[in-house]
């Protein structure tokens, strides 16, 4: 009964929820697993803290909240400060290396994977696709679902007319992730 508990954190407007949604979709629609997404629901507005929880499992998910965090992906310092201590020992941290500085609050044995996601998004064409670069990076590092599943989930989630841009962003993040994994 493999179960993976994930949290995505960042700022409102960065596309945190979409990133989480693509992961959930890739797992539950394109890979036949179960996935539950819960987004922090509150007075979040553009520029303030925003986060989403995704649980992915081979069996039916009962309790919907994340309690034993396996993977954390953060795109802001605040999100890192808030959620990094909740990672389980030996968990996985993915972070936007130009927006997040690692502190000493990481639980023991956490594996850390940096990515200059904003810069890579700019290289692809628009800074806006930072979240999809992060999603590709998540796919590359974690291997939670096949790249094909992430590709389909991305196509299914982004606005019409932006598919090429977003697929390039996904690919860019994915390659960065697989390279890091190959090097370890």
């Amino acid at each position: 009964m493999a179960k993976t508990e994930i949290r995505i954190g960042g700022l409102g407007g960065q596309g945190v929820i979409l990133c989480a949604s693509v992961i959930g979709k890739a797992a539950s629609i394109y890979e036949g697993k179960h996935a539950t997404l819960i987004q922090a629901f509150g007075p979040e507005a553009r520029g303030s803290a925003c986060s989403a929880q995704v649980t992915v499992s081979d069996s039916v998910i009962g309790y919907p909240y994340v309690t034993n965090l396996d993977i954390l992906a953060v795109m802001s310092q605040d999100a890192y400060n808030l959620f990094a201590p909740t990672l389980k020992p030996g968990g996985t941290l993915l972070y936007e290396e130009e927006l997040v500085k690692l502190g000493d609050s990481l639980p023991e044995g956490v594996k850390t994977y940096p990515i200059p996601a904003t810069r890579l998004a700019e290289e692809v064409g628009r800074r806006l696709v930072l979240n999809i670069v992060m999603t590709g990076f998540f796919a590359g590092v974690t291997g939670l679902c096949s790249f094909e599943a992430f590709r389909s989930a991305t196509l299914d989630s982004v606005p019409k007319g932006t598919e090429d841009l977003n697929l390039k962003a996904l690919q860019k993040g994915y390659e960065h992730g697989t390279k890091l994994i190959a090097a370890t």
Partner: peptide, 10 residues
């Protein structure tokens, strides 16, 4: 309820 309303699943 709020959780069922705002929870996303297949």
């Amino acid at each position: 309820d709020e959780v069922v309303g705002h929870m996303t699943e297949r």
